[in-house]
């Protein structure tokens, strides 16, 4: 049991590793909050050339261009949403890891909750069925009836078995 818990923790730890930055670049930010916002947005924006990497972690030329554009837009006073909109306008929804909620993305956003609800209903249904079965299996007997059944069992049993 302890081993199982330990291995679960190790697996969890593997999921929670922090992205390392592939590129070492120096950017100049005009506002002191700029660097923090840069890091958040660079994690949030997805490299269009790579299959599943954000622009913070990618070495591809387009990711570098996007980091530079990100810095330029931050320094021009764009809000986070305006920056994401500007990138989506060029590269499509693909470029952000949190695509906007609209009819074409409803499945993506809401399907997990629908599945969770279905799973919950199934479990409730099963539990209810079990409970009813248990109640049916044990009809209420009087003491005399029980006594009779016990005697029957005892006598039908062969000795030394």
């Amino acid at each position: 049991m302890a081993k199982l818990i330990l291995s679960l923790w190790i697996a969890l730890g593997g999921l929670l590793t922090i992205n390392s930055y592939a590129a070492i670049e120096v950017y100049q930010f005009q506002a002191p909050a700029g660097e923090k916002r840069f890091q958040v947005l660079a994690e949030e924006l997805r490299c269009p050339k790579c299959q599943n990497q954000n622009i913070a972690g990618s070495d591809s030329p387009i990711a570098k261009d996007m980091r530079e554009e990100l810095v330029a837009l931050l320094n021009q006073g764009y809000t986070d949403q305006q920056i994401i909109d500007a990138m989506v306008q060029r590269f499509g929804d693909y470029v952000t890891y949190t695509p906007p909620v609209r009819p074409s993305t409803w499945l993506l956003w809401y399907l997990p909750f629908v599945l969770l609800a279905i799973g919950g209903l199934v479990i409730l249904g099963l539990a209810y069925q079990q409970k009813r079965k248990r109640q049916q299996a044990l009809p209420i007997e009087s003491d005399a009836e029980r006594q009779a059944r016990l005697q029957q069992l005892l006598h039908s049993k062969e000795p030394n078995s």
Partner: peptide, 15 residues
């Protein structure tokens, strides 16, 4: 050229 972000970037060219 390398380092410029003009037409290609605005067109969403990534390679």
């Amino acid at each position: 050229r390398e380092g410029e972000r003009k037409l290609a970037f605005d067109l969403g060219v990534y390679g």
